[in-house]
Amino acid sequence: MTQTTAESPVRKQRAQLKTRTLRTDRWWLAPGLTFAGLLVFLIYGFWAIFDTSHLAGSYIAPFSSPCLATSCPEGARLFGFAPFGDWYTLPPGILILGLPGGFRLTCYYYRKAYYRSYWLSPPACGVAEPHKKYTGETRFPLILQNIHRYFFYFGAVIALILTYDAVLAFRDKDGNWGHVGLGTIILVVNAILILCYTFGCHSCRHITAGRLNHFSKHPLRYRAWTLVSKLNAKHQQFAWASLFSVMLADLYVRLVAKGIINFPFA
């Protein structure tokens, strides 16, 4: 019989099983869908950045907002503000892309999503990853994920701008208030989902009161934390819902702008 006392070196061995996993369920489905979902978004985003239909009536395409260059029509600019003059010839979306992009890239949920589905680290629980070495977020470049809270501050500003854009969508082509079209509804729903995603952020949860040890001494911050925690529990769902809503809203506005969608209640 093999010795199994504490001193025995063989006791240091794990069960020798040569398979990558013994899971029998469809563990590859979730990472597969995540992979496809994120890819669709990247492809759409790439197209939308170079598309120039920023404005349809009072609807501003979310991917172009806020537009900071003179190459977009007056109505698509935030308070008519365009610090980048005619000399700027690149697509205006590139100017702001980094903020919502960085916000989602460093988001704790999206990190899980792409670490699992793109980097396979791990692809699913109990399924071995293919990498020889692993250092996680302990060193450059992944240690930079720690700046997520700064992206949150910018993300919050962008969310408020998109909310303002959704309010502006209650005007008709000539700027008269009281208009409600399909586009208005789409932009409002999108703004709500973006707000729920943004303010359910883990960094936001930390800032409101997560960093405190005495909730009872800060009742208002505790109330805010409770609310953020509720959104935070659904952060994954809001991450996906808002990802697709912003894409659909953007596509819708661009199609209206191009005249491809032109029914009366558009």
Binding site: R111, K112, R116, G136
Partner: peptide, 15 residues
């Protein structure tokens, strides 16, 4: 304690 190694992929929560 190696907190930075965790890449928040949530398998611990799952099980």
């Amino acid at each position: 304690h190696g907190l930075g190694f965790c890449n928040i992929t949530k398998c611990c929560t799952e099980v």
